[in-house]
Amino acid sequence: MSVENEMKLEFDSRSCNEGFARVAVAAFLTQMNPTLEEVADVKTALSEAVTNAIIHGYEGKVNKITILCHIRQQTIEIEVMDQGVGIQNVEEAMEPLFTTKSDCERAGMGFSFMEAFMDSLQVQSEPGKGTCVKMTKKILRTENKYER
């Protein structure tokens, strides 16, 4: 049973696209026959990553966000990429409650939520070049919905 599938999504960094991105990734995920909780976990983590790209990466300016989803066996790998300002200190940015935008009432919990809801989280960033957030999650249900 070889299960491999991929999709790529590119959209403007407008906040109204956050909901679209969540639904699109959740729809792609359904072929893995996830539980409702697994879907909610992935949606929350994705929402954090996309919101980060919009608020921090592009600082409200409209540019492109790319999402790359890859299913390998029972694991979904999601990459959220922007070509925004990048992160000066990734380690510091990933600290719970750390935020550079406390005046905008950001909770500083984006990366903490991603870590909590996914199995792994990697952040690559270069100031001035952009950021790539890569997350994976194993979907525990074994039966595949569409293919065999």
Partner: peptide
């Protein structure tokens, strides 16, 4: 049925 950390920020504020 859905809330992320932006919602937390809004409530905190």
């Amino acid at each position: 049925n859905f809330m992320d950390s932006s919602g937390i920020g809004m409530i905190m504020g």
